[in-house]
Design a protein around this nucleic acid. Structure first.
Length: 112
DNA sequence: ACATTGACAAGAT
DNA sequence: GATCTTGCCAATG
C-alpha cells in the first residue's frame, strides 16, 4: 500500500496526546485532507503495527465510538481509552477529553 | 469507465 | 441525545 495520504494520516493521529481523542473529520482536516473523514478510518485499518498508531483515540464527530457497540473491537477500544483516563458514558466520551491542538505546534511537528 | 463501499459529517426532526 | 437523510469522495472491484 503506497498511498501518500495514509502516511500523513498516521503521523497526525500519532500527535493525539494520551488521554485525548479526536474525530475522523478533525484528523482529516489536520492532515490536510478536508472532506476525507472516511479515508481516515481506512488508513487506520492499514496502519503498520510497528508504527503503534493510537487508532483508538479516533472516533466520530458526535463523540461516539465508530465500532458496533458490544463488538470485540469496541470493547478493546473502550478499555484502552479508560486505561488513559478517558471515561465513556453510553459509548460517548466527555467533551473535556477532546483534543484541541495548538496549530502552530502541530504543524511544526508534522513537518518531519 | 462505471458502480459500489465506507472505522464519516452535518442538518433536520 | 437518538434517528434519518443527504452529501462526500478516494478506494476498490
Amino acid at each position: 500500500m503506497e498511498n501518500v495520504h495514509y502516511q500523513k494520516i498516521w503521523h497526525t493521529v500519532l500527535q493525539i496526546p494520551v488521554g485525548k481523542v479526536a474525530s475522523y473529520g478533525q484528523i482529516a482536516d489536520l492532515a490536510g485532507l478536508p472532506g476525507r473523514a472516511r479515508l481516515v478510518g481506512k488508513a487506520l485499518g492499514y496502519a503498520p503495527k510497528e508504527l503503534a498508531v493510537p487508532w483508538y483515540r479516533v472516533l466520530r464527530s458526535d463523540r461516539s465510538l465508530a465500532f458496533p457497540a458490544g463488538s470485540d473491537t469496541a470493547k478493546r477500544q473502550r478499555e484502552l481509552l479508560q486505561d488513559e483516563g478517558v471515561l465513556l458514558r453510553n459509548n460517548r466520551v466527555r467533551k473535556e477529553d477532546l483534543w484541541q491542538p495548538d496549530l502552530a505546534e502541530l504543524l511544526f511537528k508534522l513537518k518531519y
